[in-house]
Nucleic acid binder design. Structure first.
Length: 481
RNA sequence: GGCCCCGUCGCCAAGUGGUAAGGCAGAGGUCUGCAAAAUCUCCAUCAGCGGUUCGAAUCCGCUCGGGGCCUCCA
C-alpha cells in the first residue's frame, strides 16, 4: 500500500512519487501578517501539519517551507491606520501567528522565510521574466503578461475570455491585458520600498512565493499546499511566474484544503461570525479544536459550531478515558506475556486510511476501535492475571499514543488532561472541587450505613448540576459535564 | 452568465463500481444496593427520476435542494 494524494491539477487521486526517492519538498502558503489568524487559518495549518507529520512518519525526509508574507497592501493600510511602521505591524503579527500555531500544537516547518528577506531573489525573478518577454515595466510597475503563458488558468480551469469580460483595470494601472497582474509595484510616498531596476518599489502579491519556493526547494518540487481560495489567482499566478521563468514544471502535486463555515454560514467579517484562533481557545482546548478539524476529511467543508465542538470534546474524552483506564488497569502488572494482533492491525488500518489522501476521519475511526479494544480487554474477569491480555492492552495503548502523535493528538498525560477538563467544567458550573469532594464523602458515609435514599439524593442533585459520580471498587470519582 | 462542489441513520462524519467505518443520541442485555462509566446486541440502501453495468451511494443524464469561486481571503 502506498500513499495516494488528490492533485488539484489533475482532479484525481494520484500515487505519490517524490522527485527524489525518500525526500519531499513541500511549500505551503502561509499568512499575510496584518491581523490575528482565524479558524480558517487554523484548519489550513493543522491540515498541512498532518501532511508533514505523516510524511515524516512514512520515513520521508521532508523539507517543509511555510512563508510569512510581510509586505503587502493590507499591511501598509493597517499600519497607517495604527500609525506604526509596516515592519512593526508585521513583526507583531508574526509573533501572534507563532503563538497561535504553538498553542495548536503544530510542528515547526523546516523553513519559515519572510518575503522581505528575499527581495533580491524577487528582483532577479522579475528581471528574468522581463528578459524572456513575459513581463513588462510600466511607470515603475512591472506586470506579468498572461498572454505569453499558454498554460495560464490550467490549475483553476477557468476560461480566459470570460475572465477578461469581468476584469477591470484599476485607475493608475497601465496594463496591456486586464488579466495581467503586478510583479512589482512602484512605491507611493511613505510606503516601504526597495531599490530596483524600475525605481523604488515593492513586490506584488504572488511573486514572493515563487521566489522563496525556488530558493529553498528548487525549481521543481513535490507538494504545494494552501486553502482552496488560493487556487485563483494566487497559485495560478505562481505557476505562471515560476514556469514562465524556468521553463520547467513548478509543482508535482497541488493540495488544497476546504473551507470552514460557522453555523452553516460562510465565515466573514460582515456576518459577524468571524472567530480568531484566540477567541476559540478561550472556550475550547486546542486539542479539541485539532480533533474536531481532523474528524472531517481535509477537502470537505467543515462547520464550526458549539454543538460540533462539544461533540469533538466528547470524542476526545473517550480516548483519554480509555487511555487512563488502560494505565490504571495494567499498573503494577508484571511485564512479559505475548501481545495479540490488535496493535499491529491497528497500525495497518491507520496507515491504509492515511495513505488514502490523508483520510484522518477514517484513521480516527480506527483509533476509536482501538480504544474499544482496550476497554473490552480490561473489563474481562481476572484481566490482571492474564499476562497476554495485559501485554495486548499495553501494546494497544502504546500504539494509540504513537499513531495519535502522527495526528498531533493524545500528547497529554490522560489523568492530567481529564483533570483539567473536569476542573474547567466544574468552574463553568460554578462549583469547586472541595464542594464535590465533601458531597462524595457524605454520600460514601451514607452508603456504608446503607442509607441509600440519602446517597442517591446527593448523586441526583449533583447530576442535576452537571456533575456525574462514577463508583468503582477503587472509590468514587466524578466528572463534569 | 461562466466554472466548481455538495446532498449518506435524529445529529456529526467516512466510504467514488462489488452489495453502507466510526462518534454522539436511542432501544435492550451484562455489571451495579440502584445508577453512572464500561461492555455486548440492535438501529440507514445512500435527495428524486431515468440510464450504463452481471453488479452503483459510488459512472452518465435530468429534476429538486444547498454552497463556493469569478475582487482581498486558509
Amino acid at each position: 500500500m502506498s500513499l495516494r494524494v488528490y492533485n488539484t491539477m489533475s482532479g484525481k487521486k494520484e500515487e505519490f512519487q517524490p522527485l527524489v526517492p525518500g525526500k519531499v519538498g513541500m511549500y505551503v502558503c502561509g499568512v499575510t501578517v496584518y491581523d490575528y489568524c482565524h479558524i480558517g487559518h487554523a484548519r489550513a495549518n493543522i491540515v498541512f501539519d498532518i501532511v508533514y507529520r505523516y510524511l515524516q512518519y512514512s520515513n520521508y525526509d521532508v523539507n517543509y517551507v511555510r512563508n510569512y508574507t510581510d509586505v503587502d497592501d493590507k499591511i501598509i493600510a493597517r499600519a497607517n491606520e495604527r500609525g506604526i511602521s509596516s515592519q512593526e505591524l508585521s513583526e507583531e503579527f508574526i509573533r501572534a501567528f507563532d503563538e497561535d500555531m504553538a498553542a495548536l500544537g503544530l510542528r515547526k516547518p523546516t523553513h519559515e522565510p519572510k518575503a522581505t528577506e528575499h527581495i533580491a531573489q524577487i528582483i532577479r525573478l522579475v528581471e528574468q521574466l522581463i528578459g524572456k518577454g513575459m513581463a513588462y515595466a510600466s511607470s515603475g510597475d512591472v506586470y506579468y503578461s498572461v498572454d505569453t503563458f499558454p498554460d495560464y488558468l490550467k490549475l483553476s480551469k477557468r476560461n480566459m475570455e470570460e475572465m477578461q469580460a469581468g476584469a477591470r483595470i484599476a485607475p493608475g494601472e497601465q496594463k496591456r491585458n486586464p488579466m495581467d497582474f503586478a510583479l512589482w509595484k512602484a512605491a507611493k510616498p511613505d510606503e516601504p520600498s526597495w531599490e530596483s531596476p524600475w525605481g523604488p518599489g515593492r513586490p506584488g502579491w504572488h511573486i514572493e512565493c515563487s521566489a522563496m519556493s525556488s530558493t529553498l526547494l528548487g525549481t521543481t518540487f513535490d507538494i504545494h499546499g494552501g486553502g482552496r481560495d488560493l487556487i485563483f489567482p494566487h497559485h495560478e499566478n505562481e505557476i505562471a511566474q515560476s514556469e514562465g521563468a524556468s521553463g520547467k514544471p513548478f509543482v508535482k502535486y497541488w493540495l488544497h484544503n476546504g473551507f470552514v463555515n460557522v453555523n452553516q454560514e460562510k465565515m466573514s467579517k460582515s456576518l459577524g461570525n468571524f472567530f480568531t484562533i484566540r477567541d476559540i481557545l478561550q472556550s475550547y482546548d486546542p486539542e479539541v479544536v485539532r480533533f474536531f478539524i481532523l474528524t472531517a476529511h481535509y477537502r470537505s467543508p467543515i462547520d464550526f459550531s458549539d454543538q460540533n465542538l462539544n461533540d469533538a470534546q466528547a470524542g476526545l474524552s473517550r480516548f483519554y478515558e480509555a487511555l487512563q483506564a488502560a494505565d490504571t488497569a495494567v499498573e503494577g502488572c508484571p511485564e512479559g506475556g505475548a501481545s495479540g494482533p490488535e496493535a499491529p492491525a491497528l497500525e495497518a488500518q491507520f496507515r491504509a486510511a492515511m495513505d488514502d489522501d490523508f483520510n484522518t476521519a477514517q484513521a480516527i475511526g480506527h483509533l476509536f476501535e482501538g480504544a474499544r479494544t482496550i476497554n473490552r480487554l480490561i473489563a474481562e474477569k481476572k484481566f490482571r492475571k492474564q499476562a497476554d491480555k495485559v501485554a495486548s492492552v499495553r501494546a494497544v495503548r502504546q500504539k494509540i499514543a504513537e499513531l495519535g502523535d502522527v495526528l498531533g493528538l493524545f500528547a497529554s498525560e490522560p489523568a492530567n488532561w481529564l483533570k483539567q477538563k473536569n476542573l474547567k467544567g466544574l468552574q463553568a458550573l460554578g462549583l469547586t472541587e472541595a464542594d464535590v469532594e465533601a458531597l462524595i464523602d457524605e454520600r460514601l458515609a451514607a452508603r456504608s450505613n446503607k442509607e441509600f435514599a440519602r446517597a442517591d439524593q446527593i448523586r441526583d442533585s449533583l447530576a442535576a448540576q452537571g456533575v456525574e459520580l462514577l463508583d468503582s471498587p477503587a472509590g468514587t470519582t466524578w466528572k463534569a459535564k
